[in-house]
Design a protein around this nucleic acid. Structure first.
Lengths: 144, 144
DNA sequence: GCTACATCCTCTAGCGACTAGAGGAGCAAG
DNA sequence: CTTGCTCCTCTAGTCGCTAGAGGATGTAGC
């Protein structure tokens, strides 16, 4: 193994993506199949590490794998228009804004529940009572 | 079918929980197994509808099924102390607060990316560039 | 060379909370 | 009596990993 080549464990350490996750990314085609040593071990180079860091950062920002696939294709072709990348990022921003708004509403309701709980019997508990309250509109379920 | 009994479709309409989801809740024991008609169809009464509404509201607030299982047990025994319910709600509040903070950070970064995008070539695109930037600490991945 | 031990390989199955679809039976209205 | 809706069970799929079995390879010390 040359000094500009890395085993999967080393690639994991440097990129911050776990070993099984790297293999998973290869399997779903997000990473090109790595070259192999004689003993069938995967070998990664700088470019691979960069790609892994790109993916990790994009995942941290909550982009879905399919979006990342597109972003990677765009990155590989630097003369293309940036509009597609921009659209993906903007869509993600809209999602995040919605999510924040919805979580703020949840937070308010949880705060109200918790504040009013006198820590007495369940029969008088505001937490349980609030949940049992049937006067709610049918809203969308919250993720996470 | 008496007028205080409902078929699963009607229960779904009234509770806001979808038909397959009701069956799923029965399967995992969140809902007691419904009684059946001669023709093997599920029958629900008011109490079941209340329980379904309770579950739906709790899910909307992001409580996990296991937490809801506990909350339902508490509800069924109104002389117990409310402390457990309070603890569950407080834990959820902490999660939501963390989530909001993390999403606000994401939002900032996405905003920066999108604002600086001049909609030119990918080679100059801030969106792609930011993602490719390897000078990041290894943080936790964001859900949703 | 030999022995530990770490690291790697592939493969399958599991997570949470549903959702989708196949293939069939029941039921109410015209 | 037929049309069309609702219902039944069962299995498999979703997303993005994660865990574990069972075995091969590589490396460091003796």
């Amino acid at each position: 193994m040359r000094k500009d080549e890395f085993a999967i464990g080393e690639a994991a350490r440097q990129s911050g993506v776990k070993v099984p996750t790297i293999r998973y990314y290869e399997q779903i085609g997000l990473l090109p199949a790595a070259s192999r040593t004689e003993g069938n071990r995967r070998l990664y180079d700088r470019r691979d590490l960069d790609r892994l860091a790109f993916i990790r950062h994009a995942r941290e920002l909550g982009f879905e794998v399919e979006a990342i696939r597109t972003l990677l294709m765009l990155q590989d072709d630097p003369d293309q228009s940036c509009a597609a990348a921009d659209a993906i990022a903007k869509a993600r921003l809209v999602e995040v804004d919605k999510r924040i708004a919805s979580l703020n509403a949840l937070r308010d309701e949880l705060l109200r529940m918790v504040k009013q709980c006198a820590n007495g019997r369940v029969g008088d508990c505001r937490v349980i009572e609030t949940l049992a309250d049937t006067t709610h509109a049918h809203g969308r379920l919250a993720e996470a």
